[in-house]
Amino acid sequence: MSYSKCSIRKMLPKNYLRKHVAHDINVATANFKTLVPRMDKFVYNDGTSKDLMSLSGTLPVKFNDMTYNIPVCLWLEDSYPQTPPLCYVRPTQEMMIIRGNYTSSNGEVELPYLEEWKSGECNLVSLLQVMQVVFGECPPVCMQPHSEPEHASCK
Rank of each mutant, 00 (worst) to 15 (best):
L35N: 05
P71V: 02
Q82A: 03
R99F: 11
E115I: 08
V61N: 00
P149A: 11
E108Y: 11
F32V: 11
L35T: 05
V43E: 11
L59Q: 00
E116M: 07
S153N: 06
M53V: 08
Y88K: 15
G107H: 06
P37E: 10
E110P: 01
Y44W: 07
P60A: 09
A28Q: 09
D51M: 07
Y68P: 00
M95T: 08
A30K: 10
K19R: 15
N26K: 14
K33H: 11
V21I: 15
P91T: 08
G100R: 12
T48M: 02
Y102P: 02
H23W: 12
L128H: 11
D65R: 11
H20G: 04
V61R: 00
P60N: 08
S104E: 10
G136D: 00
P85L: 10
K50W: 01
V141M: 07
L124F: 08
G47I: 00
S79F: 03
A30N: 12
S119I: 01
N31W: 14
E148S: 13
M39Y: 04
S49L: 02
M131T: 04
F42C: 05
S54Y: 02
E94Q: 09
E148M: 10
M53E: 04
P139T: 14
M96G: 12
W75P: 01
I97M: 03
E110I: 15
L59R: 00
P140F: 07
L124W: 06
E94L: 10
Y68T: 05
D78V: 03
I25M: 10
T92K: 10
D51C: 02
K41C: 14
V130S: 05
V134K: 11
P112L: 14
V133Y: 12
L52G: 00
P85C: 07
A22I: 08
S104R: 15
E121R: 05
E148V: 09
L111Y: 13
N101E: 14
P81D: 06
N69D: 01
S105Y: 15
K19H: 13
G47M: 01
V89T: 13
S153P: 02
N26H: 15
N64A: 03
P60D: 03
P145G: 11
L127V: 07
V125D: 04
G136A: 09
D40K: 08
Y16D: 04
Q144H: 12
T29F: 07
P91K: 09
V43A: 06
V89N: 07
N106T: 10
K33E: 10
P112Y: 09
S56L: 00
S119A: 09
D65M: 05
C142I: 15
V72C: 00
V36A: 07
Q129L: 09
C138F: 09
P112G: 08
T103K: 03
G57P: 00
S49E: 09
D24A: 14
F63D: 00
F135Q: 05
D65G: 02
M96V: 14
L128D: 04
E110C: 12
G136N: 03
Q144P: 10
